[in-house]
Design a protein around this nucleic acid. Structure first.
Lengths: 139, 139
DNA sequence: CTCTTTGCAAAAGTTTTGCACGCTC
DNA sequence: GAGCGTGCAAAACTTTTGCAAAGAG
């Protein structure tokens, strides 16, 4: 995963600096959604000189080229997960923050059409997330 | 709408103070989702003595008894809309912030069952929002 | 008259910005 | 070497908290 990310970053004209690489590394070794501060804490163990600001700036870049995605939950919207890239939807564990992707566009497509007709809206985007308990947290 | 809100607020032990009533009034006269500061600005025109803090505290109460709901969009998650109460989903205009509710649980229920089987997650909640252009903004 | 709620001010948190230096390409 | 990206410090916001005073029930 890291290699692909590094490639995409350079393709987009970004320099592979130590802080950026550390943030990528943190994402590729985590199974949970991570907030900027959590990323910062994890990054510091790999690179003690890193600053919080660089985490924010790295996230900005990664988000812009769709390598990460912000996660919205009832408890807050600061956390990020790697982007699946396949227009999939998120399933999140409310207990530990673990995430997983699933597809469901066939269903949504139909729904969007119906709602567009009913409301007169021109529907351009949709957003579906499921919440629950991951197998680990059910134990 | 206001009357029902006032009733539910007193039923829940809250006092009908001037600031609280003003915030309710703002919601019942708006068709857009509103952020705390937008609510504050609108409230000041009706009650110049109101403080921003009271807006936050009113929202807390209104959210707790499910009269309003926080709206999540790619652009931010500070805005609120009146809660439909019928477990419906939101359709939002990306341009002007107008909102509308729709139902679609039959479809989602099916999807949730499938995903639960596939992933081993115990799915407890779902979250669906559509984005688009309202009829007004298409003109 | 009691006790919740208010408005103010200040604190706490998070995110952004300015700037000189360092490191990537 | 040129110029993007860094770390630090400070600023800008948003949201929360402490407290005396006001006002709802």
């Amino acid at each position: 995963m890291e290699t692909i990310w590094f490639k995409k970053l350079t393709e987009n004209g970004y320099r592979l600096t130590h802080p950026l690489k550390t943030v990528v590394e943190v994402f590729s070794t985590s199974k949970k959604s991570l907030s900027p501060i959590e990323i910062f804490e994890l990054a510091k163990t790999k690179n003690p000189r890193i600053g919080l600001v660089s985490v924010y700036r790295s996230l900005e870049k990664l988000e812009e080229i769709h390598l990460v995605q912000r996660v919205h939950t009832p408890l807050g919207c600061q956390s990020f997960v790697p982007y699946s890239g396949k227009h999939e939807h998120l399933l999140l564990c409310s207990t530990c923050g673990a995430y997983q992707y699933f597809t469901g566009d066939e269903l949504i497509g139909e729904l969007m059409k119906t709602i567009a007709e009913k409301t007169g809206y021109e529907i351009t985007d949709h957003w579906l997330q499921l919440f629950g308990k991951c197998p680990e947290c059910q134990k």
